[in-house]
Structures are given as structure tokens and as C-alpha cells.
Write a protein that binds this DNA or RNA. Structure first.
Lengths: 211, 211
DNA sequence: TGTACATCAGTGAACGCGCGTTCACTGATGTAC
DNA sequence: TGTACATCAGTGAACGCGCGTTCACTGATGTAC
């Protein structure tokens, strides 16, 4: 069984402490919330001295950025999955919206770190021009265009429509945890039904009627 | 001139330290941001010992709640003002939305404290049933009904529509500070024009077309 | 109107805490010859 | 294949800091008689 090798204390050199620290941070985050996310706590959780992280991250901020970065990647993946699974282009935007809000609901602390670090930088990740093709932002944009929710020849219109959709989803994501809405969720038969109903009321993805 | 009385150090008993502490907190908040808002810093800013606040607030949380409470009152007032000044019912919702986002832009740290304390409680202020008639929530709701954006005989529909509008505005308020949108603001001729354009894309306040 | 005294609203020193970061160090690794 | 040595990635103790809160205290206020 070579149990001594299996159960043995971690060797002096860790192998991939960078990774281990980010994982530890994620574990802490979900277990204790964003306020528990100190560098020392992360090192402790990873079973390493408080100084060790400094061989891998310049400072606390850099670790947080790394954690947030993983969050954005996960969100990208969730959105891509929702887009791929949508039965029709007309339902795609709603499905993406629901996936977005579900991600926030399922990873509340991570979601908070993502936006907290973004706010520190005053910018969402990617400069939205050179952003990667599989990003959630691009998925939303392309879906909007395809569904007729934005004029494909008007770049400003496209950005506005995409931003509007993003803001709507983020707004709902931030609100969805409040207890006020419990009875609406009940009345509608579940949390996701509530999300869908809200998106419907926002007219998300409907071709706009000019006013 | 009785300068000794005017310029004199504050008397032993303060008069209204409660008020002074909240004001000090507000000053700190706008000057240094939410992270600088410690009980000790507030006491310092108010020119009082670190123990003094405990004669007026049970703990730090209670002071924060008081600060947030003032924020919500201010927001209520801003929304009421926007509603009263809207030239027509059809523009009212847009004006309210713009006023909401402008409030967040002009009081970013206060806005953050408002939602941070709300999230701690997992509830927005007022239980939304027994909420006061002049609250922003009610203003939005009544305006929506009046504008034909919600079915006045369907309480669920009313709540959904109001919540949807609230989420949209909050989402935009959270995003509006990001640098990504600078060029959109430029292209549209200003920040408020950008807000309006986003709301337009959200279809805020338009009677919904059934899908 | 004056005085004794309870109560109120401050003070300032102290508590223990966890934090981010630095430092001199040491054990492990890998490369040149 | 073996050895010297540079480099890498850890350790653990220490730094100074600001925090929330408590405590015994004291100065000011106001009320009963």
C-alpha cells in the first residue's frame, strides 16, 4: 500500500503551490465568505507558511486577481454551455441570462471577488476590444445580433445592447439572494422560474419596439 | 466677538454625537472609500474617543446600518424628485432610472455601504410589504403601473415588473464606473446619454410585447 | 433658590486579535563539468 | 557517474499596524426636595 508515500506529509517542495493556493482560496471563499480571504488564511488552508505565497504572487492583490480570473473563466464556460444547449436562437439569450444568474447564485463569494477586483481596476477583465472570442461578453453579443436584438451594422448599437443585457443579468444576480423575493420564487414555482420571469419582464433579447 | 465661545473646543457633552458620527462616517466614506470606514476612524473624524460611539450605537454594524439608512432616504428623495419632474408618464420611468444611476455615481461609497449592509441582512430595507409609501420601490411600482408596464390587477406581475426595473437600474449603476464604457459615453455625448441609451435598450417602461 | 445625588455621555488606557509583509535561514533540486 | 555549487521554494520568527471592544473613570447635567 505504500501508505507512507500516500499519507505522508507534503514534501518540502510543493510541486504546484500556485495552483494549491488558488484552490485553497476558493475553498475558503465558499466556506467562510469573501471577508475571510486573507493571505495568511489562504496559506494556512494550503498548509504552508505565511511567507510561502510570496514566491508565487507579488502580493495579496495578485492572488485575488488570480482567483477572480478563474471565476471569469468558469463564467465564460457556463455561458458557452448555456448557449450551446439553447434549443433555439430565440431562447438562447434567456438561457444565457439564467445561466449567468445561476452561476452567481452557486458561487456567491467567488462572484463577489470577481466584481470587487474588477471595481478596484475600474474595468471588467479583457479590454472588451481585444477580448477573447469565447468570452461571455462575446457570446452574449453574438447571440444578441443573431437574435435580432441589435443592428449588426451599428457597432454602437451592438455594444449598447450587449451592455444592457449584461447589466440586467448582473442586477438580477445581485438581487436574487434577498429574502424579499422568496414569495415570488414560491409563487412562480422555483428560483429559475423567477429568473426567467424577471428576464421576460426586462424584454431581454426581444427585438426592440422603437419608442 | 466672543471668539472663545465660537472657536472653543467642543464641550464635554457633545449635544448630538449620533448625528455627528453619521456625518463623520459620510465624510470619511466619500473621502477614503468604504474600506476606510472603521469605528475608530469615524470616532477620530468626529473628534471623539474610540469608546464614545458605544453610547449611541450597539456596535459597528449598527452605525453602518444608520449610515446606510440615510443613504436609502436620500435615494428615495432623488427618485421622488425625478418622478415629480418627469414631463410625462411615458418618460417618468426613464427619468427615475437615470436619477437612480446618477445617485449611485455621485455617492459611490455610500451606495456600496447601502448594498453591503443589505446583503448582510439578505434583505433590502423595508420588508417591501409594509414599506413606506414614499419609498423608491413604491415610486417605481406606481409609475410602472401608470405607464402600462404592469397589469394593475396582477400583484405578481406588478412585483416582477418592479423588480425587473430595479435590477436593471442596479446593474447599470454597478457597471457605470468601468472604463470600458468611456468611449460609449463619448460617442453618445455624455454619461447621462449613455444611461438613457442603456435603459432604452432594456426596454424599461415600455409596455411589453408578449413573446 | 440652593443643594445632594443619580444619571448620562464622555475619556483614555488597555485587551487580544489577525493582518500583510520582510527577513535571514535552510532544505531540495538541477546543472556544469 | 559523481561532485560542487547556484538557484529555487520553502520555513518560522518578527515587524508594525489598525481594528473592535471593554473597563474603570470622571466631568456635566438635570431632578427631587
Amino acid at each position: 500500500m505504500r501508505e507512507s508515500q500516500v499519507a505522508e506529509a507534503r514534501p518540502y517542495h510543493h510541486g504546484d503551490l500556485s495552483r494549491a493556493l488558488i484552490d485553497a482560496a476558493r475553498r475558503l471563499l465558499e466556506a467562510e465568505g469573501p471577508s475571510a480571504l486573507s493571505l495568511r488564511a489562504v496559506a494556512r488552508e494550503a498548509g504552508v507558511s505565511p511567507a510561502a505565497p510570496y514566491h508565487h504572487f507579488k502580493d495579496k492583490g495578485e492572488l485575488l486577481e488570480a482567483v477572480a480570473g478563474e471565476g471569469w473563466d468558469m463564467l465564460d464556460a457556463a455561458i458557452a454551455r448555456a448557449r450551446a444547449q439553447a434549443p433555439s436562437i430565440h431562447q438562447a439569450l434567456n438561457e444565457i441570462g439564467v445561466a449567468y444568474v445561476c452561476f452567481a447564485r452557486d458561487n456567491p463569494a467567488l462572484y463577489r471577488v470577481m466584481y470587487d477586483t474588477a471595481r478596484d481596476r475600474e474595468a471588467l477583465p479583457g479590454d472588451m476590444a481585444t477580448i477573447n472570442k469565447d468570452s461571455a461578453y462575446c457570446k452574449v453579443r453574438d447571440t444578441l445580433i443573431e437574435a435580432g436584438g441589435a443592428d449588426p451594422r451599428d457597432p454602437i448599437d451592438i455594444e449598447l445592447a450587449t451592455t444592457a443585457a449584461w447589466c440586467s443579468a448582473h442586477g438580477l444576480a445581485e438581487m436574487s439572494g434577498f429574502k424579499q423575493f422568496a414569495h415570488l420564487k414560491d409563487a412562480l414555482g422555483g428560483e429559475e422560474a423567477f429568473f426567467r420571469a424577471i428576464f421576460q419582464h426586462m424584454g431581454l433579447g426581444l427585438p426592440r419596439t422603437p419608442n
